[in-house]
Design a protein around this nucleic acid. Structure first.
Lengths: 220, 220
DNA sequence: TGATTATTGGTCACTTCTGTACAAAACACG
DNA sequence: CGTGTTTTGTACAGAAGTGACCAATAATCA
């Protein structure tokens, strides 16, 4: 492999260019902006397909600055995953409070997923789902983080279904775990197929069908 | 990129070692066996992660023989995709004849997917699904083949649902297209999540749930 | 202003990958 | 047994990637 497996020598935490000022030469780039660019690049090309050079080029910085600031591809990717977790369209699912109606949130999230994925001209799909496929089973260092995220997603869906059932929004599923898995599986599949089918209406029709089948009352 | 994008010079079709005998030095390897090995390697590491060297090494042949026999990574991958199409557990879906009961085939296919994916110690998932994620949007040469396969899968599900409805096995779906998409999406998601969850019973419980919701009568 | 400090820009040494070229090897056939 | 044919082994030239190293630069701070 041209992309070697050895990890960069760990270093004292860099000042991180945009975090206020201090002694030393100022960085020529904005850390947040660079991170955003890195997110786009890693999302589009995947962790495997985005080299340190490609990332540095995209960010408009030298490779030396790249290593100095982000400590390497792996560390950067972990940071990117956190960042992605804050902008992913399914984020609201994990923020439902007790007593709150579940259905509108679920509907909105699936609608948003359809809208956002269909609107992406690059059809990048979901970074997390892409990462499952590319890294689990091939990258022992990063896989655990990905696997953990999936398991949390399942738990979120399970809690959410329980709440919806308790609040009478849906009939009580015979097998709560299975229902939670079903939703997770569907959401994953939806993100994948959005790379092939980019018509929002088609995607949403399928979501409507799926959510209705689970007992959610989706308005026309 | 270390993995350049230029394609190898096209050549006169090689004799393909195991196809009978003829003049010239005999190949030291069996083409079918080598293809099987290449399938495993490409399946495990993905098209992006499997270099010509890695493939040659796995097959136990020199890189010169690799290029001579398979003409390069891309041509090999196309061949591998065809091969995979013949061993994929969902193959029977496309072979249902008119008048034949749909439900048992659908049930068996999903059962088989759960069984096969859960039994795979390497959790490779589905080569086709993995390829959607890794290649669509990033490899203009190979993407069309993948996209076509997905579209055919959707059509297969649509025809199959129509037949099932006509034969009274399931209630007529309000939106046939949406139902077909739903099944496709679920099958894709199932293959992805099998990389994270390898307990057959868990996977199958979710399939049961999903198929029941679509109206299929699944036996306990 | 001088000491301190962090980023930059460039280079080094190394690995892996790419596709091509060609002589040597090993067979079939007349 | 020589001729033709095909695969093999090895080498080549070039591209791209890896992380480390270090002098120059450009700030802050005393």
């Amino acid at each position: 492999m041209a992309r070697s497996t050895k990890s960069p020598k760990s270093r004292i935490t860099p000042r991180s260019s945009s975090t206020g000022r201090g002694p030393g030469r100022p960085a020529k780039f904005n850390r947040e902006t660079a991170l955003e660019t890195a997110l786009q690049t890693l999302w589009k090309r995947g962790y495997v397909g985005a080299s340190a050079s490609a990332l540095s080029d995209a960010m408009g910085i030298e490779r030396s600055s790249f290593y100095n600031t982000f400590l390497g591809r792996e560390a950067l990717f972990r940071e990117i995953l956190k960042l992605y977790g804050q902008i992913t369209p399914d984020r609201p699912l994990g923020q439902i409070t007790l007593g709150q109606a579940v259905t509108p949130v679920v509907e909105k999230v699936f609608r948003d997923v359809c809208r956002v994925r269909a609107a992406d001209p690059e059809s990048k799909g979901c970074l997390m789902v892409n990462s499952i496929v590319m890294l689990v089973g091939n990258d022992p260092a990063l896989a655990p983080e990905i696997v953990g995220a999936v398991q949390r997603q399942i738990q979120v869906f399970e809690a959410l279904l329980q709440q919806a059932a308790r609040q009478g929004e849906i009939p009580v599923p015979k097998d709560m775990r299975a229902a939670a898995y079903t939703l997770t599986i569907f959401l994953i599949g939806l993100n994948v197929i959005s790379k092939v089918e980019n018509k929002e209406a088609v995607l949403w029709a399928s979501c409507r069908h799926q959510l209705s089948n689970l007992g959610f009352q989706i308005k026309k």
